[in-house]
Amino acid sequence: MSADFWAGYVSGAVGIIIGNPLDLVKTRLQAGSSSVQDVRGTSTAVVAPRSFRGQFENAGTLVKGATAPILGYGALNALLFMTYNRTLTLLGDSPATPNSFAKVFLAGATGGFASFVVSAPTELIKCRAQVSTEINATSWSIAKQIWAKDGIRGLYYGGGITSIRDAVGYGFYFWSYEWSKQAWSSPDDTDRETAFKVLMCGGFAGIITWVSIFPMDVIKTRVQTQVLQPEPVRRSEQQTLLHAEGRRMQLSTIQIARHAYQTDGAGVFFRGLGICSVRAFIVNAVQWAVYEWMMRLL
């Protein structure tokens, strides 16, 4: 395997280990008050606690849902960085010192879209594990339950909105990192100054990325964690979101977005952005530092 593959894999796994507790809070705030399925197929009511501390039922909650992203996000990051570097090279630019920010954005978006193959099932399993209050729910048990019920198609539920989110988000991710790095770097920087600036630029890129896609991420989380109640919900004569016969149906992405807006207003699409920004800065600062260090090492 190439150096950028392994550098991406390790940096992605490290980022997940560091950021999982804050990611859990972000996911639960995005999901809101809803019901999710436990591993036995029954529904479990979830109401987002009001306090930060209240999000953690016990010490095990700190790593809840981490298994899928540690394994999957490492592979995702490896695929992302490898695709980004190859695409930028094909566009006639250098990944080490790119000259065109437009090409950087395009290469990042291409890498983000390619990573959907890994990110869609990883995000689905992670979100359901984090939102579920079932004590015995693990990433593995949730994956088995989804596979048994819907097969591979079930693992890619919500894949459409996930692929769009990834393409847009990673376009801004690489663009903001390269822009800030080139604007701030100097040939006279010492190794310590260079390392500090990589951390700051990585953290800045993480925040810019999440701000650009956060409403889509909220919708994605709600799509992937939805288990609808049998009661009918009507917002207008033209819109019936649930059947009254007691059957469960899954809403489309547009219906989820419309229902969230009508229920909680525009603010719902930015719920959890604060905690997500803190997490994004920490995780991506460390992730870029590990990536740059491993690239030099390899």
Rank of each mutant, 00 (worst) to 15 (best):
M1K: 11
M1I: 08
A3S: 15
W6F: 13
S11V: 07
L24H: 06
V25S: 02
Q30G: 06
S33Y: 03
R40G: 12
G41K: 10
A45N: 08
V47E: 14
V47S: 13
P49T: 10
P49L: 06
S51I: 01
Q55F: 09
T61P: 00
A68M: 09
P69Q: 04
I70L: 14
L71Y: 04
N77R: 06
N77V: 01
T83M: 09
T87S: 12
T87A: 13
L88S: 06
L90Q: 11
L91T: 05
N99Q: 15
N99I: 04
K103H: 14
A107Y: 01
G111E: 02
G112L: 01
A114F: 02
A114H: 00
V117M: 07
V118L: 14
A120V: 06
P121K: 12
K126C: 03
N136H: 15
A137T: 11
A137H: 08
S139F: 04
S141M: 09
A143W: 02
K144Y: 10
K149T: 15
D150C: 05
I152A: 15
L155P: 05
Y156W: 14
T162W: 00
S163E: 03
A167I: 01
G169F: 03
Y170Q: 12
G171R: 02
F174D: 03
S176A: 14
Y177S: 07
W179C: 05
S180W: 05
K181M: 13
S185F: 00
P187D: 09
D188G: 00
R192Y: 09
E193H: 05
M200H: 02
G202S: 14
A205H: 04
A205W: 01
T209A: 07
M216F: 15
T221C: 11
Q226V: 02
E231I: 08
E237S: 09
L242K: 03
H243Q: 13
A244E: 09
E245D: 15
E245M: 05
Q250W: 07
Q250A: 10
T253W: 11
H259L: 08
Y261P: 01
Y261V: 01
D264K: 08
G265V: 00
V268Q: 03
G272I: 01
G272K: 00
C276Y: 02
R279H: 10
Y291E: 09
E292G: 02
M294N: 12
